[in-house]
Design a binder for these strands. Structure first.
Lengths: 357, 357
DNA sequence: CGTGGTTATGATACCGGTGTCATATGGTCC
DNA sequence: GGACCATATGACACCGGTATCATAACCACG
């Protein structure tokens, strides 16, 4: 254990004697000023129904006057839990992380809850131990798990064991719907498939992600179903497995472009790989979109900056974070949140797709 | 105030009677098992010098056996502060935010401190009030302020008034050095200037950022000094002001390319604007780097994905976060951190720069 | 007017730590 | 051996909230 050298045993400075008007008010101050006991103030704070309306008003007045807010640490100590929500993530895409954070904090605003971030290594053997210590020590109110962490069933089992609330953000339903925000990546992929088919493409390639990612599986499944709707099917020779990285996109697309009968369109399961496909296309002297159409997934910042701008599937990341936060933390001021814990991906058509040559 | 409906006044479940082996240990358990008072355990935890070596060992043994860790809430309540560090940021670049977070958490690992994130709107009139409430309610141990928030002197003054530790991350020294991590953006910009000058460029343009950002001022200053070292100076006609955005980069570069005697090289004060310059170059039929060299700043993920890959100045963002965390939180296990709270930018030369045509 | 059943309130203990202060212990010096 | 001092320890109050339980206040009813 690390000890913290907080200058133990030091004398407490005199404080009460001089004008302590600047000192923060406590529940005792409010109680005294309102002429009630602290327990009654506590009842008002916690919206207990057993407080006379008149008393409640008086206490609330004092609270407003003094600007009193309860100390989350003291409250947490008594409640045996904290007012902290954890975000446990392992996503190399900074935009996902930041967007989720912004969304979660949108939901937490005004509730008194705060957000603790905890990046993890999902391949670490210590992952479960780390999460256990994190949740127990901080007595977390709940945690948000974006993918791919949300796909770790052992971790979810651990959270259940610890009695820690959680909301999973994932591409496909995997659990009690009350604990999930579902992005339906498959629908976005199907949109991409129809878009390419409608442009007249028939030799359409796919660069997939690691099969251990549910998003990859789901995007591929959706893409195939979209093609099927247009009477097309995926030619196994035109499917290359990538790793969601730039380099893997370069390699996979390079292989596709080296085929005798090369595809006229490629769907890359994320934008990083699509960027790699751009480079490979240049290396093979192929123009986008005249010679080959390319579609990505994520609508990362890079998508609009590439040239030509990349057609991609956008996920409402911030909304997803907000929904997760709303599901986790009850806010009496909020309207009953619709149980629609699902969002729809959106195909953003830019300049990287055109009619088949 | 939002009330939280935590089921007040509910009966506590019987617990102590049945096998409470699973219950977390408290300082009382440790004290009893070690045969000392809780105060002595507290002394051991806080590395008090007034504990007999023998007693200390005995207590530490029990602590190790039981896996006891003190409750941060209870400790914080008694200490009148928390073991939480805040990250107050307003940076549209998600990579900055995530890298800083990772770095700060590198430093916090093993110290028992946790990181609370707080995105803010630096233009909001409620900014100071929000920060005050945030710091006071959470009794933050300290906060990290990346730029541009770090440049808000009112906010820094507020933190001083509140007695809240802070570390500023900024491009140039602005304060007591003990409270700053300095990235010396100017040096990186000077590197860029020399690089272009050494390639034979003389008509070198600059697309600046908003003058309200210290980073913009500092990068420009460094660039000019780098040029001066090579006997060059910035032609006012070749300086355009941007806003650190893609669109502003397109416009500024477009104006430069429309000049009769257009520049052969452009230094853009961030990569977003450099991306815009890429688009403008294409619109004007100019090849990069044959017709115009372009240098960016930030080495954002996009830099390596653009075509041709963008020469840019990289800041060690994660290191900067780590240093900020180390400065904020004392860790007895850590070696005395060098008082070198400065980092050096690094010019990453890629394919967007070549000898002057 | 006493009885009984709500409704409303407060006294007190408690959550799990630390600060204060009193006291016990051990060694040195005369 | 007694005075003195530094070291080592514990009893107790306290940090700012909530849970438990007793009790007061109120009402309707016989």
């Amino acid at each position: 254990m690390a000890s913290h050298e907080q200058g133990p045993e030091r004398k407490r400075r005199a404080r009460a004697q001089e004008g302590d008007s600047r000192r923060k008010h406590t529940i005792n101050d409010v109680a005294r000023m309102a002429g009630v006991s602290k327990k009654t103030v506590s009842r008002v704070i916690n919206a207990s129904p057993f407080v006379k309306e008149e008393t409640r008003k008086a206490v609330l007045d004092i609270i407003r006057e003094t600007g009193y807010t309860p100390d989350p640490q003291a409250r947490g100590l008594a409640f045996r839990r904290s007012f902290l929500v954890g975000l446990i993530y392992d996503n190399p895409n900074p935009q996902h992380t930041v967007s989720h954070q912004l969304g979660i904090l949108d939901a937490l605003k005004g509730t008194g809850f705060e957000l603790l971030v905890r990046p993890v290594d999902r391949t670490s053997p210590k992952l479960l131990d780390d999460v256990r210590v994190f949740v127990e020590r901080q007595k977390l109110y709940g945690v948000v798990l974006p993918s791919p962490v949300s796909e770790n069933e052992d971790l979810v089992a651990l959270l259940k064991e610890l009695g820690c609330r959680y909301v999973r953000i994932a591409s496909v339903p995997m659990d009690d719907a009350a604990c999930m925000v579902v992005s339906h990546d498959g629908k976005g992929a199907a949109d991409a498939a129809r878009h390419l088919a409608d442009l007249g493409h028939t030799r359409i390639a796919l660069i997939s992600g690691p099969p251990t990612f549910r998003s990859s599986v789901e995007r591929r499944r959706g893409f195939e179903s979209g093609l099927a709707e247009r009477g097309l099917s995926l030619d196994p020779a035109l499917v290359k497995q990538g790793a969601y990285t730039y380099e893997s996109g370069i390699n996979a697309a390079g292989e596709l472009f080296a085929l005798e009968n090369r595809p006229t369109a490629i769907f890359c399961l994320n934008d990083e790989m699509a960027s790699g496909a751009y480079l490979a296309a240049r290396e093979h002297g192929l123009r986008i979109p005249q010679d080959v159409s390319i579609v990505g997934f994520d609508d990362a910042p890079i998508a609009a900056r590439l040239w030509p701008a990349l057609t991609s599937v956008r996920l409402p990341l911030r909304d997803m974070g907000r929904m997760a936060g709303e599901m986790l933390v009850p806010d009496p001021l909020r309207e009953v949140q619709a149980d629609a814990h699902e969002v729809q991906p959106q195909l953003i058509v830019r300049e990287s797709t055109a009619t088949a040559g």
